[in-house]
Design a protein around this nucleic acid. Sequence first.
DNA 1: CGAGAGGTTGAATAAAGTCAACAAACGTGG
DNA 2: CCACGTTTGTTGACTTTATTCAACCTCTCG
Lengths: 293, 293
Amino acid sequence: MTQIQISELRPGSTNAIQHTSSSEAGWQRQGKLWSNLKELCDLLRIPAAPAVTDEEFLFQHVQFKTGQRIHTIGQPFDTLFIVHSGFLKTVLIDEYGNEQVLSFPMKGDLFGVDGIHTKRYSSEAVALSNCDLILLPFKKFTALGRSYIELEHAMYTVMSRELVREQSMVSMLGALSAEARVARFLVSLSERFAEMGYSSKLFNLRMTRHEIGSYLGLTLETVSRTLSAFNEIGLISVDQRSIGIKDVDSLRTLRRLPPSSSRSKAAGKRAREAAARTATTEVSKEWTPIAAV
Amino acid sequence: MTQIQISELRPGSTNAIQHTSSSEAGWQRQGKLWSNLKELCDLLRIPAAPAVTDEEFLFQHVQFKTGQRIHTIGQPFDTLFIVHSGFLKTVLIDEYGNEQVLSFPMKGDLFGVDGIHTKRYSSEAVALSNCDLILLPFKKFTALGRSYIELEHAMYTVMSRELVREQSMVSMLGALSAEARVARFLVSLSERFAEMGYSSKLFNLRMTRHEIGSYLGLTLETVSRTLSAFNEIGLISVDQRSIGIKDVDSLRTLRRLPPSSSRSKAAGKRAREAAARTATTEVSKEWTPIAAV
DNA sequence: CGAGAGGTTGAATAAAGTCAACAAACGTGG
DNA sequence: CCACGTTTGTTGACTTTATTCAACCTCTCG
């Protein structure tokens, strides 16, 4: 059974990925190897799959090391991936070889969905840390959907969720200032960490400033400067990859930072209050000194 | 049968939409009223539904007039919509009431998918012209999917396509200049019109500069200026809402416009060539006069 | 015909990007 | 374990891009 499953799941998969360097090669086979339907649904945070304790259907796990590519652009699509543990990025590569980061999948996230449409992945997925992924062979999955109708519905739900996420991303890129983007990025990371059972107040970024910038439509310098500015006014503490969240509420509602002229270590609290105020009250394009309010 | 279908399709739907003005009220019932599965798949440009000539399953059409709202944010989700004819926009409304345009659905497009996830629409859809829409009650649809497996697969395909579209939107907003965004917007409009059997060279915009700007993450002034600039160097002709595409290739590959100092009516062709060149050759941040090449 | 919405254009301003120098952390091989 | 080169991050000075504000024009449609 196990052997049959493996070859059924990914016929010739190891060869299907063209690896340029030996460090990126192959699938590893240690660690936990199988999950059942229930574990899978729990992981995806979907209410469904109640009666399904059927041990018949098992899903294979695969481990990837930091830096390995899970799939590349143009590679024939046959499987979806669910993150069991670890951190990844998905990227688009433009005509000039520039990366555009699309998402940072982590525990409970599904990716590879973009491959359904054209039968080829339209993006590339790379492990930012050691990862444990669950393989969801698309053929097997749709077949299953016919027996377990909740599963089919679950798939629609997850894809819809993904679409809403992309929409809010578009809205963010289209309408928000650099500061607001970085602030919201930090908040959403914080929330994700909380969901995963980690501290929401203190965590390590798994990605570079360059990757954050690409994701947010900013340059790495702008990201770095913005983090420094948040640090200066006490919204967060930064030291390289380690981030401490000091004032979630201000981050959550921040629209624009007060001009740096009114920023100083002494002005910290005032600025922080102001950041919150600029966020929650309409307009006030003009920077009003706190004394005048 | 017809009566049963109608009430089955949208139980109390007319009341479900809260209309603020009387001009936006109600569903119209004139025009073509039903489509079968085949017509539906053709419209969605999916290969599927070969054996399905079953006349049993019919899908209701509904007409909307310019300016009417199809659904609003927060409204309970129960149906998907396919555009049979006409033009629409979907928008997100932020905390301050600002619209963020997400898409401009037209013939063959599916919308409402964002509602699946939370059982409520997360966006608002508005008719930009008189529209004929096909209703796809989600419950009925998933039930059908069990009998016609191609249909289920088709749904995955369409949702995946939608996701890829959003991804390329994110990439565009994150990485491209204002000129490049407007150029690509025009090209994709042109292609859509071609698909629909209209002229790809000469068409009328159905949306305002403000809506275009919101969609592209720009201000209406920037959109207007960019169109004027394209007109000046002969890439397009503009007169209010009417657009003539003069040089698709340059528009398609344009990255950045030459500085306006080297722009003039006489310099039109040179500039046009240059626009193409800046697009296809790497970098060349500096503007090199054509004579020097 | 007149009001209002949509569109264009210019000048001034602000936001973010670019270029450049440097510092800190990392990882690899001697 | 340390020296080295490489990658990543920070910061400053300057430039470019797009926004903002404002005036004005032009359609459209009651």
